[in-house]
C-alpha cells in the first residue's frame, strides 16, 4: 500500500514561559527581561504557521538494521526507542518561516530579542510536536542525529514525507532545515503511549538542557 501522507495544523497551547527562559539560558528573569519577552510574544504570535505532515510506515528489524520499506538504517538507539512498537509514524513539523524572519530582523537591531525569538521558536516547535505526539499517543520521538541515528537519514525522511511540498520544509546540502524552527522525527505507535524521558538514552552528558532524571 502506498503511504498516506497527511498534512495537519494545530492550535498551539499557551506559551510555556519557563521553557522559553530555559532555552534562553535564564533561570530567574527580572522585570526588564520579562517585559522584553512580552513584546516578543506579541510580535511573534501572528507570524506562527504551525504545520505537520506525517505518514505511517511498517518497520522490521534485522540485527541493528531497521527497515522502513523506503529505506534501511542502522541504529541501535532507535531500535531501542522503538521496542515494543508495531508501526512507526514519521513526521515533519514546522512553525513556519515567520520566526526566521523575526530572528533575522533583530539579528543586528537587537540581538537580545533575536535570542528570545530563538528560545521562543524552540519552545513553540516542541509544543507543536507535543500536540502531534499526544494526539497519536506516540512513544518518544527520535530524530536524525539523536544517539547513533545518522543525521544523513534526514534525506530519506524528506524524500518520503515530501516535506517541502506538504509543509514548506526544506533541507540543504549541509542537512540544515529551513525554516529553522522545525523537527523531523520517528515515533512508534504503542498501546501505552510515551513513558520514557528523552534524555535517558542520550550520550551528551554535559548538555545544559539535560533533564534531571
Amino acid at each position: 500500500m502506498e503511504p498516506l501522507l497527511v498534512t495537519k495544523t494545530y492550535a498551539l497551547p499557551p506559551v510555556n514561559l519557563s521553557e522559553v527562559w530555559r532555552y534562553a539560558g535564564v533561570t530567574t528573569p527580572d522585570d526588564a527581561l520579562s517585559a522584553l519577552l512580552e513584546e516578543c510574544l506579541l510580535e511573534a504570535e501572528p507570524q506562527l504557521a504551525p504545520k505537520v505532515c506525517y505518514g505511517e510506515f511498517p518497520f522490521s528489524c534485522e540485527g541493528d538494521n531497521l527497515c522502513f520499506g523506503f529505506a534501511t538504517v542502522a541504529s541501535a538507539d532507535l531500535k531501542q526507542a522503538l521496542q515494543g512498537c508495531q508501526k512507526v509514524i514519521l513526521f515533519g513539523a514546522t512553525i513556519g518561516i515567520g520566526m526566521d524572519r523575526l530572528i533575522a530582523k533583530y539579528g543586528s537591531l537587537s540581538p537580545t530579542k533575536a535570542l528570545l525569538f530563538q528560545a521562543l521558536g524552540a519552545e513553540r516547535i516542541e509544543a507543536l510536536c507535543d500536540c502531534f505526539c499526544k494526539e497519536f499517543a506516540l512513544s518518544r520521538r527520535f530524530s536524525p542525529g539523536y544517539g547513533d541515528l545518522p543525521l544523513s537519514f534526514q534525506k530519506d525522511l524528506f524524500r518520503v514525507l515530501d516535506c517541502s511540498r506538504k509543509i514548506g520544509l526544506t533541507l540543504n546540502d549541509s542537512l540544515l532545515m529551513s525554516p529553522s524552527k522545525s523537527v523531523t522525527a520517528i515515533a512508534g505507535t504503542t498501546d501505552e503511549g510515551c513513558v520514557t524521558s528523552p534524555c535517558d538514552r542520550c550520550n551528551k552528558k554535559d548538555c545544559s538542557f539535560r533533564r534531571n532524571l
Binding site: I97, D100, R101, A104, F158, S164, R165, T170, L171, N172, D173, S174, L176, S178, P179
Partner: peptide, 13 residues
C-alpha cells in the same frame, strides 16, 4: 515543480 530547496536568505540556495 519546485526544487525542494529554500532560496537564500532563509536557505542557502
Amino acid at each position: 515543480g519546485p526544487t525542494g530547496r529554500m532560496l537564500a536568505p532563509y536557505g542557502d540556495f
